[in-house]
Simulated scan of single mutants.
Amino acid sequence: MKFTTDNGSAVSESGNAQMAQTATKHAPLGAATILHVVNAFTTTFDEVIEWNKNRKTRKVLSGLTDAQLEDIGLERAEIAKI
Score class of each variant (00 low, 15 high):
residue 1 M to P: 02
residue 3 F to A: 12
residue 3 F to K: 13
residue 3 F to I: 09
residue 4 T to Y: 05
residue 6 D to S: 15
residue 9 S to K: 15
residue 10 A to F: 05
residue 10 A to K: 09
residue 13 E to Y: 09
residue 13 E to D: 14
residue 14 S to K: 09
residue 15 G to W: 07
residue 16 N to M: 13
residue 17 A to G: 08
residue 18 Q to P: 01
residue 20 A to E: 03
residue 22 T to V: 14
residue 23 A to E: 10
residue 24 T to C: 12
residue 24 T to E: 12
residue 26 H to Y: 10
residue 27 A to I: 04
residue 27 A to P: 00
residue 27 A to K: 03
residue 28 P to V: 08
residue 29 L to V: 15
residue 29 L to H: 13
residue 29 L to D: 12
residue 30 G to A: 04
residue 30 G to E: 00
residue 31 A to V: 06
residue 32 A to Q: 14
residue 33 T to G: 09
residue 33 T to S: 13
residue 34 I to W: 10
residue 34 I to Y: 12
residue 36 H to Y: 07
residue 37 V to F: 02
residue 38 V to L: 13
residue 38 V to E: 10
residue 41 F to W: 06
residue 42 T to I: 06
residue 42 T to R: 03
residue 43 T to E: 05
residue 44 T to W: 09
residue 44 T to I: 05
residue 44 T to S: 14
residue 45 F to D: 10
residue 46 D to A: 05
residue 48 V to F: 01
residue 48 V to M: 03
residue 49 I to F: 07
residue 51 W to D: 06
residue 53 K to C: 11
residue 53 K to E: 13
residue 56 K to V: 05
residue 60 V to T: 10
residue 60 V to E: 11
residue 61 L to W: 00
residue 62 S to D: 15
residue 62 S to K: 14
residue 63 G to R: 00
residue 63 G to W: 02
residue 64 L to I: 03
residue 64 L to S: 01
residue 66 D to W: 02
residue 70 E to T: 09
residue 71 D to G: 07
residue 72 I to K: 11
residue 73 G to S: 03
residue 74 L to F: 00
residue 74 L to N: 01
residue 75 E to R: 02
residue 75 E to S: 10
residue 77 A to Y: 04
residue 77 A to I: 06
residue 78 E to M: 14
residue 78 E to S: 10
residue 78 E to T: 07
residue 79 I to Y: 01
residue 80 A to H: 07
residue 81 K to Q: 15
residue 82 I to G: 02
